[in-house]
Design a protein around this nucleic acid. Sequence first.
DNA 1: TAGCTTAATGCAACAATGTTGCAAAAGTAA
DNA 2: TTACTTTTGCAACATTGTTGCATTAAGCTA
Lengths: 125, 125
Amino acid sequence: MKSVRNTTAKTEIQELIANSPVALSHTEIQSATNGLCDRVTIYRILERLTVEGLIHKVVNVDGVVKYAGCHSCSEKHNHNHIHFSCQKCKSVTCLEDVEPSYKLPKKYTVSEMNFTLSGLCPQCS
Amino acid sequence: MKSVRNTTAKTEIQELIANSPVALSHTEIQSATNGLCDRVTIYRILERLTVEGLIHKVVNVDGVVKYAGCHSCSEKHNHNHIHFSCQKCKSVTCLEDVEPSYKLPKKYTVSEMNFTLSGLCPQCS
DNA sequence: TAGCTTAATGCAACAATGTTGCAAAAGTAA
DNA sequence: TTACTTTTGCAACATTGTTGCATTAAGCTA
C-alpha cells in the first residue's frame, strides 16, 4: 500500500506555487526556495504534485516548462483554458475564465487542449 | 553585404521538411539525413531557414521543438492556425484551415497565438 | 576556369535541463 | 519508540542546444 507523505519541502513548494499569480519554472522555484532541498528533489516533488492533481504543468511557447496551481480543479481536473505568455517579463498566467471555440474538420480525436497567447501582460503594456 | 548561400545540406533539409506531412524535430531530421552534416550544422540551418521564413518552429505540448514547412505563407507570414499533436505516434500536424475564436476580458496585448490540440490523429484513432 | 571573398561547416567544449540508481534520512502508523 | 517505507541527497549520466575558431566551399568577378 503506497501512501503519500507531506514533507517540509513538498509543502513549501506547493504553497509557493499556489500563492504565485504566475506559473513558475523549476529554476524560479529553486531560487525562491534557496537551498531548501536538492535540485533533483524539486523535480521529484513537482512530478508528484502534478500526479496528485495539486498543480499543473504548462509548457510555454518558448519551450520553458512552468508549473501553476490548480485553482478551480477541485471537482473535475480541467485545464482547457487560455494561458497568457508575456514576451517582456516572460510571465505565464492562467486566464481561467476564457474558453476558446474552434471546429475541427477532419476525423481527429481530441482529448486535451493547449492554447497560449503571447504579447504584453497588463503590467508590461 | 551579407548574402545567402544554398548549400547541399540546406537544400536537402529544406526539401525534407517541405515534403513531410508532419513537423519534424532536430533528432528526426538528423536520422533522416543520416550523416549528411554535423549536428550543430543542422541547428544552424534550421535557424537560418526559420529566419528566412521558409519553415516555422513549433514547440509541442511536451516541449519538443519541431519544424514545419510554410505552405501558405507566401505573402504574409501567418502561423495563427491550430496544430494537432498525436499522443500515440507523437506527430505534429498543421491544420492550416482552422482558426479558433476567443475573447480576452482583460487588458492584454496579443501579438501571437499558439494553439495545439492533443489526442489521436486519423491514422492512430 | 581560376582566384578571391566570406558564408557555411566541423569539431571541441560548454551550458542548461532533466533522469536514474542507491544509500541515508525522515514521515507515519503501531 | 520501533518498524516500515517514502522521500531525499549525491553522483553520474542523457539530451538538447550554444559558442569559438580554424577549415571548407559557394558563388561572384576577371
